[in-house]
Simulated assay, not measured.
Amino acid sequence: MVNDIVADLITRIRNANCVKAEGVLVLRTKLTVSIVKILKEEGFIDHLEEVDIPVKHQKVANKYLLLSLKYKGVKQKPYITALKRISKPGLRVYVSKSNIPKVLGGIGIAVISTSKGLMTDRKARIEGIGGEVLCYIW
């Protein structure tokens, strides 16, 4: 059982990028679906699909998301060069609307959990709301 779903998602994507895997399976929750949709909108992943995987001794199948990762060039360099978990279960990191971080001067994105749902740092600045900084992606 996974206690930190966001850290598990980030670790799976990071490990898949290291071995240049075409796809990666991540557990489907509302939070992971929201983060993956942001990754798709920002162009970090190609496409995603929902997959049901049956489990022994259980009647209900576990739901997973199959993410197709994007690579560029002949050398297959990944679009996602780094993922960093910021707010952790033991130490939450909150920012106000005036302190929203810019990742690499705007090249990367920060995923922020706000009262209006998950959004990127750019959108949170436009909306004028702060929240919990979940992770940085560049």
Rank of each mutant, 00 (worst) to 15 (best):
M1Q: 07
N3Y: 12
N3S: 12
I5A: 06
I5F: 05
A7M: 05
L9H: 10
T11H: 06
I13V: 11
R14S: 12
R14E: 07
C18E: 12
E22M: 13
E22G: 15
V26R: 01
R28H: 13
K30F: 06
K30R: 14
T32I: 00
V33A: 13
I35S: 02
I35R: 05
I38C: 03
I38R: 02
L39F: 03
K40F: 03
H47W: 01
D52S: 02
D52W: 00
I53S: 00
P54R: 02
Q58H: 12
K59V: 01
V60E: 00
A61K: 14
N62Q: 10
K63Y: 09
S68K: 05
L69E: 05
L69N: 08
K70S: 01
Q76H: 10
T81M: 11
A82H: 14
L83M: 14
I86G: 07
K88G: 13
L91Y: 11
R92P: 13
R92T: 15
Y94K: 07
S96N: 09
S96F: 09
S98P: 00
N99V: 04
P101L: 11
P101A: 11
A110T: 06
T114R: 11
L118H: 05
R125G: 03
I126P: 01
E127H: 05
I129M: 14
I129E: 13
G130D: 11
G131D: 13
E132K: 14
V133F: 08
C135R: 15
